[in-house]
Amino acid sequence: MKILKKLAVAAAWIGVWELASLAVGADYLLPGPLPTARALAALAATGDFWLSVWGSLRGILAGFLAGTAAGLILGSASGLSKALGGALSPLASVIKATPVASFILLALVFMKKAAVPPFSAALIVAPVVWKNVNTGFRQADPLLLEMAESFKMPFRRRLAAIYIPGAAPYFRSACVTSLGMAWKAGVAAEVICAPHDTIGRSMYLSKIYFETPELFAWTFTVIIISFILELLLGRLIGGKRNVKD
């Protein structure tokens, strides 16, 4: 029953899309669901499509992992050292407040264009993971910490027994939340930098050649991959709880 309800809602929105497309009356401005589906089927039949998907996935996921690792290390260190947390806090705020496009354009000055999408993805992920892990560490149970101090529990055991289990839900939610953000920022960087064999470059080319159904098909591909990635990550590391960012 739930699935039927969801299908009905999806069908209703596709209907709205079709009506809007009919109202505009030009596929090069607003293609309807059918031309988009045809364009997607045609793209998916080519090797270049899969090469672009693989190129984007590889680069952006590498950036996501790098940002996650940086956020995890710095978040843990900040959770244990108030001074470091205080020093990193303004930097994280600035990164979060700065438009992604600004970072992409700045990064283009200093690095090769193929490196910009992973860098942008990492930059989006790191502050989110940093903040959540930092919060998780700071909320470690003070009663358990006092117990650990009393029983002279070594630092490594405190980390494993008290800090890490406390911070784990925060880390998981940061990962699931920031994956979608990283994916979108990475594709945006690809559109601006247009590195070879990426979805973003294909979107850029579709746009300049006015192949709007293809542009819609690529956008649809980005959305589908984003859903799949979030679903897979959610299954892999456990649900979306205690989202702090």
Binding site: L143, L144, E146, M147, S150, F151, A161, P165
Partner: peptide, 10 residues
């Protein structure tokens, strides 16, 4: 060595 007011178990 302490027994605290709360159990304080991991």
């Amino acid at each position: 060595s302490r027994v605290f007011q709360e159990d304080r178990l991991i």
